[in-house]
Design a protein around this nucleic acid. Structure first.
Lengths: 180, 180
DNA sequence: CTTACCATGTAAGGCGTTACATGATTCA
DNA sequence: TGAATCATGTAACGCCTTACATGGTAAG
C-alpha cells in the first residue's frame, strides 16, 4: 500500500475538488501548481487510465460538449487513498536550481557570466510574481466561500515570500560580485 | 554538442577546483551542493567513467594511499566543456515541494494535518540553517584566498535568505490556519 | 574485534519528458 | 480559411535512484 506515486496523488488531489478532463488537469498544473510541481501529458494520461483501473477514479464521456471530452471523477476509494497519502509524513522536498549550480562554479567563467545568469533569474521571477500577487487578491476576496481557499492561500503566500526574497538576493548578489 | 548532461557538468565543476575521487565527489554533493542539487553513486560512478572515455577527465590510481582510490582530474577539453555549459542560458530551475503539494490539498484532511506538515518542514529548516550560517562565516574569513569563494558565498547567501523566509512563512501559515 | 567509515561499482527498475500522431472546434 | 486552442494519447528514450555486491581501513 506504500510507495504512492506523486502523479497519482496530484491528480486525485485536483479531482477531489471537481471533475476534470486530462487536459484541464494539465492546465491546473501549469497555472496553480507550477510554482512547486509540474507534469506533462505523457505522465498525466497514462496515470488517469491507471487510476480508473485501480478503482480510484471513474471515467465518462462528456455528452454535453461537442468535443471528445473524457471527464474523470474521484471515487470513495480514491478519496481514501488521497487522505492516506496526505497523512503520511513528507519524504523530501527536491530542488534542482540550475541557476545556483552555474553560480557555484561561476569562478571558471567570471563575473560577467554570473551577472547574466542572475539577471535572467531576476527577470523570470519578476514576470511570475504578479500572477502570485493576483492569486492572493482573488483568494482573499473569496476566502470564506470555499474551505480549500485557505490552503491555496498558504502556498501562494509561500511563493510570494520566497520570490520577494529571491529579488532581494539578486540585488545583494550583484553587489557582492561587482564589489559592494 | 548540445544537451549537456547535468551530472557531467556538476562533476566537471567540482573537478575544476581540485582532483577528486568518486567518493569525495559524492561528499561534496551531500554537503556544499545538497541545498540545490543532489546525485547518487549510481549516477556519479558511471558518469566519471564516461567522462574519461570522452577525454574530459583522466583517471589514475592513488599510490600514496593504502586505499583503492581512483583519482579523477579534469582535462583541458573538460574545462572547455564546462566553460561552454556555464555560458549557455539557464534552461530551468525545478522544484518539487512535496510539502506545498500536501498543503495545497490540505482541506481534504484538515487543519491539524497541515500544521503537522508545517512543523516538520520548520524543524528540517531549523536543523539545516546553522550549517549554512557556519559556511558563510568560514567563506567570509577566507574570501580573498580563493576567487571561487565569492561564488560559493553567493549560493550560501541564497540558502540563508530563503531558509529565513521559510521560517517566517511557517509562522504566518500557522496564524492563517488557526485563525489569526 | 567490531563498528563506522572509506571506496567502487552494477543491475533492475521506476519515473518522467520529448516528440510524435491525430483530429475537432473556435475565433478573427 | 487559417491560426490558436481544445483534446487525447503513445513510443522511445533518458536519466536517476534503490538495492545489491564487495572489500579495505581506522579507531575505540
Amino acid at each position: 500500500m506504500a510507495n504512492e506515486k506523486k502523479i497519482d496523488c496530484v491528480i486525485l488531489g485536483l479531482l477531489s475538488h471537481e471533475e476534470l478532463t486530462g487536459y484541464e488537469i494539465k492546465k491546473r498544473m501549469d497555472t496553480s501548481l507550477k510554482y512547486f510541481w509540474s507534469a506533462s501529458y505523457g505522465s498525466i494520461y497514462p496515470a488517469l487510465n491507471d487510476l480508473v483501473h485501480r478503482g480510484l477514479a471513474t471515467k465518462r464521456e462528456d455528452t454535453n460538449s461537442k468535443r471528445n471530452k473524457l471527464i474523470y471523477t474521484i471515487t470513495e476509494n480514491g478519496r481514501d487513498y488521497l487522505k492516506k497519502w496526505l497523512s503520511l509524513p513528507i519524504e523530501k522536498d527536491e530542488l534542482r536550481y540550475e541557476t545556483l549550480l552555474k553560480l557555484f562554479f561561476g569562478s571558471e567563467k567570471g563575473e560577467q557570466q554570473a551577472l547574466n545568469h542572475i539577471e535572467t533569474f531576476e527577470r523570470r521571477i519578476k514576470e511570475e510574481l504578479p500572477y502570485l500577487l493576483h492569486a492572493k487578491t482573488i483568494l482573499n476576496e473569496n476566502i470564506n466561500e470555499d474551505n480549500a481557499h485557505k490552503y491555496y492561500l498558504l502556498t501562494v503566500e509561500f511563493g510570494i515570500k520566497t520570490y520577494q526574497t529571491y529579488l532581494e538576493w539578486c540585488k545583494e548578489a550583484r553587489k557582492l560580485l561587482t564589489g559592494e
